[in-house]
């Protein structure tokens, strides 16, 4: 992926390709509600994440939980890539 080159170990989820796996390093959004929502749905830093699909919506799997999110929310999840 072209855009991965500038920051391989710390990318917003929306810059990653489908089927990427990684570890969540941070969750940041200017809208506090989104962060709260992700936290309460079990998306925390340090957890393993798989980006299953990115179109038409982003679909992530964290633990056993599968969540569909839009691009804005995806961009708030920062990931250290560990494989595809």
């Amino acid at each position: 992926m072209v855009y991965q080159s500038f920051s391989v170990d710390y990318s917003p989820l929306n810059y990653l390709g489908a089927k990427t796996q990684g570890v969540i390093t941070a969750i940041r959004n200017k809208d506090d509600k989104i962060v709260k929502k992700l936290l309460s749905m079990g998306v925390h830093t340090g957890m393993h994440i798989t980006l299953e699909q990115r179109f038409p919506s982003f679909v992530i799997k964290v633990g056993q939980t599968r969540i569909a999110i839009d691009k804005n929310i995806a961009s708030s999840i920062k990931v250290r890539v560990i494989g595809r």
């Binding site: 309460s40 749905m41 079990g42 633990g63 056993q64 939980t65």
Partner: peptide, 9 residues
Amino acid sequence: AKHLAKMLN
């Protein structure tokens, strides 16, 4: 039971 940690929150 599938997502115990998340739910224990």
